[in-house]
Amino acid sequence: MLNHEAIQVSQLIKKYKDSSTPAVNDISFTIKPGTIWGLLGPNGAGKTTVISILCGLLKKTSGDVSIYGLNYQENREEIKQLIGVVPQDIAIYPTLTAYENLKYIGNMYGLKGQELKERISHCLSTFELDHVSNKRIESFSGGMKRRINLIAGILNKPKILFLDEPTIGVDVQSRNIIIEYLNKLNSEGATIIYTSHLMEEAENLCSYISIIDHGKIISDGSPTELLRQHSSSNLEQLFLKLTGRKLRD
C-alpha cells in the first residue's frame, strides 16, 4: 500500500441520467501521499461529483479510480477504513450528545472499549470540546458543531481525509483551530482532499491545487506555480481569470 499513490484517477467520466453533458468529463490526476490537495471551482463545476466518486458515494460512468491501489468495485470496505469524510452539512445526530455521536461513529469503524474512549477524549480535548462531551449537539454553537463534524471524520485516523468546506460559517477562533489541526494531521502523513470557496484559506493550506470547471480540470499545480503561470497576485484573482466573472447559479 505504501508503494501506491494516495489517489489515482484516470479518464474519469460521470454523466447523470437527466443531463445531456457530463458532470465530470474525462479527467485524470494523481495525488501523492501526504498532499493537501485543493479542488476549487465555481458552483456546478463538478467538485462535489469528483469528491463523491472518490469517497465511494457515487458510481462513475467510466474511467478508473484507485485509493492506495484499491478500487471500490473490489475493495469497498478496505477503502472505507482508509478514508475519513467531513461533509459540508453537520452530519451529526442533533439529539445525541457529542460523546454518543462519536462512540457510534467509532464503533462503525470497529473501534471500541478503552481505545475508543481515549481516542474520543483526545479529539474532544484537541478541539476544546471536552467540557461539552455530554451535551446534546442541538445545544452547540455553529463553530462547535463544525468542530465535532470534523472530529467525526478523523476519529478513525484516516490516511485520506476528505473535507468539503470544513470552515464555512465559523468564527476566526474555530477556523484557526481547524486549520492548525489539519496541518498537524498532514504532517503526520495524512493526505487531505479539500474543497472550499475560501481562496485565501486554500492558498495557505493546500500544497497542490486543481481548478475544475465544466467537469474538466483547467489548471493545476502548487499555489506558487499556479500564480506564477497565470501571472496573478493571489488565488482569487487567478480563479476569476480562469473561470470568469459570470454567475453560475
Binding site: 469517497c55 465511494g56 458515494l57 472505507k80 478514508i83 452539512d89 452530519a91 461513529i105 467525526a152 476528505f162
Partner: peptide, 14 residues
C-alpha cells in the same frame, strides 16, 4: 437530508 446518511455510507458496514 441532514447528511448523516452520507457519512454512514462512507463508513465501514454494508
Amino acid at each position: 437530508e441532514d447528511g448523516s446518511y452520507l457519512r454512514i455510507k462512507t463508513m465501514p458496514g454494508s
